[in-house]
Design a protein around this nucleic acid. Sequence first.
DNA 1: AAGCCAGTCAACCGCAGGGGT
DNA 2: GACCCCTGCGGTTGACTGGCT
Length: 255
Amino acid sequence: MGRTPCCDRAAVKRGPWSPEEDDALRDYMRRHGNNGSWITLPQRAGLRRCGKSCRLRWLNYLRPDIRHGGFTDEEDALIYSLYSQIGSKWSLIASKLERRTDNDVKNHWNTKLKKRLAAAATFSSTRSPSFSPLPAPTPPPAPAHPSSSLLFPFAAPTVKAEAYSTYDDGGDFLAPAAALHDPFGAAEGSTSASLSAASSGSNWSSAVDNGAAADGGGAGGFFADFCTAAVSDLDAADQFLTGFYYPLDTTVSPV
DNA sequence: AAGCCAGTCAACCGCAGGGGT
DNA sequence: GACCCCTGCGGTTGACTGGCT
């Protein structure tokens, strides 16, 4: 039983692409573009590859208008913010970052940002009594777009569905800071506990959903605080994370 | 020098959904 | 409405690399 394979696995090459294959695909795309289907492209381009593999290689690696690695602080902050609102919708998040691919954003999140957030949450749960979180920056004025007020639908059953509808309406993902929601604190009562529980598995987006459903979207908590800072003031966001990385009695030298 | 381990990232897999018939 | 084909997406895997012991 099972699903029909998209191509004959015995007849196609798999694994890493050789420079020759890259050249062949790049050359074909430069000459013809993909004015047909990805399924038939390998045959037209003389490649012994699955069409899906060609598509992925082109979109994630060979395309001339993409950047790899070297995510800036601004991009990190934007990723945190968008993830807090829509979960693991990497293609949507990538579309809000210039010249980034969904695969790159996803890898960056899984290898760096998720761990950074988990580490920050761990520290926040064990912080010393002398620790004093930074006050949340003043929220920016509400965007002019009328649908922006709906960006974080506290009464909606799921965050993602509403976020999508807002996106489709042309809304701005950068919600007013006051509307940000802490899915982890809301889901299980303890920010650090729920955060570590969520991060130990892979289904963070369901944690977002659960959080929204559990309390209708209470504000506050680590995640919301961080995103509040990230959205409204990058310097404040940096200070915020720094505050969680290091005890207050630690001297942090500017780079 | 060798082995181990963790981090990174390219690539694969399978599902969802859109469009055409 | 049902079916098929194709594309796009998100989750996951595995190869590679560098640091550490």
